[in-house]
């Protein structure tokens, strides 16, 4: 296998306690820490491990997002990716359009495996990988917790609601990764220096000749109903009494 493409989305860091803006127009993102979507970082780690085992020769990271997504791509390069592509758009891009952009890159660069996160922790959509597999007409293995490359095939263990499912897919293919697949490496300072010299291609979104997908409009945002802090009991007897009180024991 030659080339692996990995998607890296720039999202609010998972440690940030996000808040809905007071006017309901969106989520407060001003001045908050931004990071690589944690699932995407796991996808990249897996791609790097596959390459380090000699089962692939190039790892390409791609992000569709604002100009600042360069930071996440540089982090990806510092982790070990060979080159990066930023498809720049100041406004958010819908999942189907992202899938169509990835498909254009696949056709242009000849990609054998696409590794994506199973969802992005901002919109929690969980769509892009599946959409890409559908329009590409290639296999998908979603929610992967183990990937074994076997020449022109891969055996993938998937985390599904009833347990672990094992499937076999022909390459090229799309795999979306789950949290237990691996633990991403830490970036070391010399790698950050080296990454500065690696190629990062910047392309404007409108240079892509993709059919535009009808977007789903986000009208308003509201905070979720807060749960109230309840009562504290002093001991197990108090707990049992409180449960009995509610008819729960």
């Amino acid at each position: 296998m030659e080339k692996i493409l990995v998607g890296l989305k720039r999202v609010v860091d998972y440690n940030v306690r996000v808040r809905v803006k007071n006017d309901g127009s969106g989520i407060e993102t001003d001045g908050v820490k931004m990071s690589i979507n944690p699932f995407d970082e796991i996808a990249l780690e897996e791609a790097l491990r596959i390459k380090e085992r000699g089962e692939a020769s190039e790892v390409i990271v791609i992000s569709v997002g604002p100009s600042e997504a360069q930071q996440q791509l540089r982090t990806g390069l510092a982790m070990g990716a060979d080159r990066a592509i930023l498809v720049e758009s100041a406004t958010p891009v819908d999942p189907l359009s992202v899938a169509r952009i990835f498909k254009t890159i696949i056709d242009r660069d000849g990609i054998d495996l696409v590794l994506l996160g199973k969802q992005a922790i901002d919109n929690d959509n969980s769509q892009t990988a599946q959409m890409l597999a559908a329009i590409w007409g290639r296999p998908q293995a979603t929610f992967a917790s183990q990937i074994d490359m076997q020449g022109d095939k891969a055996r993938v263990t998937r985390e599904v609601d009833v347990g672990l499912e094992v499937i076999e897919i022909d390459l090229p293919a799309v795999i979306s990764v789950d949290l237990r697949l691996n633990e991403p490496r830490y970036v070391k300072l010399p790698d950050i220096m080296k990454a500065k010299k690696k190629p990062l291609d910047q392309v404007a979104l409108d240079e892509f000749d993709i059919e535009s997908a009808p977007a789903i409009k986000e009208l308003t945002f509201e905070p979720p109903a807060e749960r109230e802090r309840g009562v504290m009991v002093n001991d197990v007897a108090g707990l049992v009494a409180a449960l009995k009180d509610k008819g729960l024991a």
Partner: peptide, 23 residues
Amino acid sequence: SSTYGKDVMPQVAALLGVNQVSD
């Protein structure tokens, strides 16, 4: 919105050329 639905429904949407409303 189970692993079954999450696996198949976005494929249906993409083949029809639309985005999906998740969850």
